[in-house]
Nucleic acid binder design. Structure first.
Lengths: 202, 202
DNA sequence: GGCGTTCTTGACGGGATGGTCAAAACAACG
DNA sequence: CGTTGTTTTGACCATCCCGTCAAGAACGCC
């Protein structure tokens, strides 16, 4: 049933995953209930379990389905572009992701916060590989004197931390800014651009 | 029973809160069970409920008890010190907190990630007030040309994001660094010091 | 329209979980 | 010791929640 065969299957699987994203990202795996997901999806609980074998299966289908989207901005960074522009572009794309897909960000945050019980393999594998690969590029740029010399992996961590913060701690960001419903992202974008320009200048 | 009256009460309440910190920080409020907490504390479940009215009461007692510790590093920042040194000191203290009290960090992260259902008031109140107060100091320093002009609140966000990242996403940090059990904090400290020095220089 | 397949659901089982209670164990103090 | 107040616990209850199942509804194809 993993590959949808009929139109109804495609539609309902998508509906279920969207509802599950809503609920899992808001309360974590343990906090979510099948009844809630069924409710949001507008389906009955047994119907959910007709399309997915278990609560766990819905959750892992979500995670693995979203992982590629999540890593794309880093993959897109090109070794043959202008280093500062490439990095600023990565920051910008990552911040756009935080703004446009906050549920996805919180889903991953929740998972990693609890020690990534269901993602450990992919983090230690694909993700670590990708970072290692990009670190080589960053180190080359530093060797060429085109950006400041910094620890490449901590540089990537800082991009993750600063961009995802706006999605994961959105509630706190808005409460502390006290700008009644105003979008915090334009100022964040400007701030992060300044920060990374200054940081990367040799 | 909130103020311990006997030695036994003081000891057991402390034992329970420590065990609860362990369990709540690892799995969130919904994910934690009283049986787990009782097990870690080495007490029976009814005994837990002799000292605290409910699971909820344990959780809120934890949160409010730890909040002061959590905000202290920011409070400690003095308006009459050297601006760059004060800010770097804040970064260092916050990073030390992440290293020495990761459970506390994850507890708060979990709570805010889920929209702070039990902390909204204090975030919109005390925390927002403290940030507003310190923002004034930061703005004065900028007006005097002693640090670069930046959005003061986003500057504080960036300190939170960059330091707490090492506690909250510890699993990912260690997996991506691939340095088998090596302490990531020395390099983090050096990286963050460089980052903020460059950022704050006018 | 008839018929096999796919989809949907009400009712239910079983285990986990927060919380109660009454009685037993223990401590403190005369 | 004996009495009084504190602490501890085994047994239990009610509810929640994941997952099952059998039967019915809808669909697709002839």
């Amino acid at each position: 049933m993993s590959q949808p065969r009929t139109r109804i299957q495609a539609r309902n699987q998508e509906t279920i995953l969207q509802a599950a994203l809503d609920v899992f990202s808001a309360t974590g795996f343990r906090g979510a209930t099948l009844d809630q997901i069924a409710d949001v999806a507008g389906l009955s609980k047994p119907n959910l379990l007709y399309y997915f074998a278990s609560k766990e299966a819905i959750y892992t289908a979500l995670l693995s389905g979203l992982l590629d989207t999540w890593l794309d901005p880093l993959r897109t960074m090109r070794a043959d572009g202008d280093p500062v522009q490439e990095l600023l572009g990565y920051v910008r794309r990552k911040l756009d992701l935080a703004r446009d897909y906050p549920r996805e960000s919180r889903l991953f945050a929740n998972e990693i916060l609890q020690g990534a019980p269901r993602m450990r393999a992919v983090i230690e594998g694909d993700l670590a590989d990708l970072v290692a690969e990009k670190s080589i590029v960053l180190t080359q740029w530093m060797d060429q004197g085109r950006i400041a010399r910094l620890h490449p992996v901590h540089l990537i961590f800082s991009i993750w931390a600063l961009t995802q913060h706006y999605a994961d701690f959105d509630m706190q960001v808005r409460a502390v800014l006290r700008e009644e419903g105003r979008d915090p992202y334009p100022a964040a974008r400007e701030y992060l651009e300044t920060l990374f320009r200054k940081l990367l200048t040799p």
